[in-house]
Design a protein around this nucleic acid. Structure first.
Length: 647
DNA sequence: TCTCTCATT
């Protein structure tokens, strides 16, 4: 076991008494990093590990002949940290310090400290597997265990073998997964840097509650009645719960005696799908004499830091996605959080001063929670990952050196799909089609739709559809406005289904003058942010197609080529109508229903293909297009051989 | 016969 070092980078034999900023540990820290290939750094909130450490390394000459990469799981983090460091160093952003995220690259050949998203560094590795330009690679927020961070773990570990003594790796983590990281990297040291976080008192309930929603309601009102000034942050699992409490809290507050009435509580919702102008409300101070209650999804755990919060209310649940390799379905379910997540939530009460976290469960329940959230690599479809590993010359992904191995069945399912898509040959080697697919920054099934679209004479349309499918939903339905929304969307409707309906929206969107687009979307209950992103993705994909010398062609008003292109990528999600109006998947014989958000909901086409199988209250097909049953065998002959029967 | 945690290339 490596030594655990704490505080001032001296040996910790128990308690840490000194609380020093990272600057005072500078020389000891540099010495340790020089002495080891890989260093694990545990830095608390406010320790300056992301901003100051790269500067120390640069000043110490450790980037000589190259540069320092610092990865972040989120683009906003990469951008804001780069800004701060450029300011601290007194240089212009994009000179010595820059960032590189999708659609936005401020770095230049002189850049010595590059902040990137972890996904961006994975993309770079696909082009230059040795990542030659970097002398130091720092993987920040490694405890979040995003899919890309996990890929990078394996990439940099192997890189150190190939680039003997020429690459330093520093893995930075906020929690106590450090021993696991040290074990995987056979790292010499774990360094612990103390941060500047205020103390947070953690309180538990003596007895479990029947309804956590009701418990949140009571907790908020009780804090408001009994605790000194300070805003309240409550974690809920989704939009519906937020809507419910946004309505109930003022109602109940109004009924309570001893309170000054509902005007003293300001309720502010925050979740990712909320339009940006409404999201901005969490950053505004509540009016004098009132208290702000923020009702948040887990967006407020890491992505958004709300100022002024002194009280956290944590019911202990989260809506989490998981993927079944057996059925190929994603499911979205409310599950208990992990201990690490509970600590992260509580920490949100101590950003500006001492705080209190109210955990709405028993202390024993906390002890029984899993230590950490299951890493993303074990919760998602691995099609893209397997394709990327093949590009990185990993012949047997099943035996790859993962920190946490995905299940063999999930890997095999992904490899089988790549075979059926034609990205791999029967030997498991990348085909020329597979090499084209890996260049495109989209899911492999959509890469196939795009490349088939070109052959079928509809690459223009396929580009738009694939770009739109790679963003958040374009149709935004506010509660109780379903009827007027349906009315507003009528002009775009296509009886073929959601893909071509969105294509129609996109075409109309582009015809609107740029300054008018936001308003145009608001009037039609369309998500401006998603459409704008689709425009960016489309442009980026068009660049890639140009480099791949794929022709740009349009099929005009004929939709059949588009439907066939969709089927050529999405054939594992082809389903036939049954007498009870559900659908049977051809690949697995499961039954599914068309999701209520689909324009085909209630319309009963004979045969459908769709993007995604999602299990919530039942199994739903999302983003659906109608196809001719007779097209199935030719779309994927190998796949449907013997399976289609009398279709 | 009624729904959408959060990120990313």
């Amino acid at each position: 076991m490596p030594e655990v070092i704490s505080g001032t980078v001296t040996k910790a034999s128990g308690d840490v008494t000194k609380r020093l900023p990272i600057a005072e540990t500078r020389n000891e820290l540099l010495q340790l990093i020089r002495a080891h290939d890989t260093t694990i750094l545990v830095g608390e909130t406010g320790s300056g590990k992301s901003t100051q450490l790269p500067q120390f390394l640069l000043q110490a000459g450790m980037a000589r002949g190259g540069c320092i990469a610092v990865t972040q799981p989120r683009r906003v983090a990469a951008i804001s940290v780069a800004r701060r460091v450029a300011q601290e160093m007194g240089v212009k952003l994009g000179s010595e310090v820059g960032y590189n995220v999708r659609f936005d690259d401020t770095s230049c050949p002189d850049t010595r400290i590059r902040y990137l998203t972890d996904g961006m560094l994975v993309r770079e590795a696909l082009v230059d597997p040795d990542l030659k330009r970097y002398k130091v690679i720092i993987l920040d927020e490694a405890h979040e265990r995003t899919l890309s961070t996990d890929i990078l773990f394996a990439i940099v570990k192997h890189l150190q073998v190939r680039r003997q003594k020429d690459l330093k790796v520093i893995v930075m983590s906020a929690t106590l997964d450090a021993a696991k990281f040290a074990d995987f990297f056979r790292a010499g040291k774990i360094v612990h840097i103390v941060g500047r976080q205020h103390p947070v008192q953690v309180l538990y309930l003596p007895e479990p509650v029947d309804s956590y929603l009701d418990a949140v309601l009571k907790a908020v009102l009780q804090i408001h009645a009994q605790q000194p000034a300070g805003d309240i942050l409550a974690f809920l699992t989704g939009q519906e719960e937020i809507d419910t409490l946004q309505r109930l809290i003022p109602e109940r507050a109004g009924q309570m005696s001893g309170l000054d009435g509902p005007e003293k509580l300001v309720i502010v919702p925050i979740f990712a799908a909320l339009p940006p102008e409404q999201q901005a409300r969490v950053f505004e101070d509540a009016p004098a004499g009132s208290r702000k209650v923020i009702l948040a999804t887990n967006i407020a755990e890491t992505s958004i830091t709300v100022p002024g919060v002194r009280y956290v209310v944590d019911p202990g649940f989260v809506k989490a996605r998981s993927y079944s390799s057996r059925t190929g379905a994603d499911s979205l379910q409310v599950v208990p959080i992990s201990k690490a997540q509970a600590r992260q939530r509580s920490g949100r009460a101590g950003r500006e001063g001492p705080g209190v976290a109210f955990r709405l469960y028993k202390e024993e329940t906390f002890q029984s929670l899993p230590a950490a959230t299951v890493p993303e690599i074990q919760r998602v479809s691995l099609t893209s990952l397997m394709l990327q590993l093949k590009q990185l010359n990993v012949q047997q992904p099943q035996n790859f050196d993962f920190m946490d191995k995905p299940s063999t069945s999930a890997m095999l399912r992904a490899l089988e799909l790549l075979l059926a898509l034609g990205a791999l040959d029967s030997e498991g080697t990348l085909t020329s089609l597979g090499r084209q697919m890996v260049r495109l920054p989209i899911e492999p099934v959509f890469a196939k739709v795009l490349l088939s679209g070109a052959e079928l004479g509809c690459s223009q349309e396929a580009l738009t559809i694939v770009a739109a499918a790679s963003t958040d939903p374009i149709f935004f339905t506010p509660r109780n406005k379903q009827d007027s929304a349906a009315q507003a969307w009528k002009p775009f409707f296509s009886s073929t289904g959601d893909h071509i309906t969105k294509l129609n929206v996109f075409k109309s969107f582009l015809e609107v003058r740029k300054p008018d687009r936001r308003r145009w979307c608001a009037e039609r209950m369309l998500n401006f942010r998603s459409l704008k992103k689709a425009v960016d993705i489309r442009a980026q994909l068009a660049q890639h197609l140009k480099q791949l010398k794929v022709p740009m062609v349009s099929c005009g008003s004929d939709t059949a080529p588009i439907q066939r292109a969709l089927l050529s990528g999405l054939f594992i999600n082809a389903a036939i109508l049954l007498p009870d109006n559900t659908y049977r998947l051809q690949a697995s014989s499961q039954t599914v229903s068309i999701h209520p958000s689909s324009v085909l909901h209630g319309r009963k086409p004979r045969c459908i293909v769709f993007d995604e199988l999602l299990r919530t209250t039942r199994r739903y097909a999302r983003n659906v297009t109608a196809v001719e049953p007779s097209w199935l065998p030719e779309a994927a002959p190998m796949y449907f051989h013997g399976k289609t029967g009398n279709v």
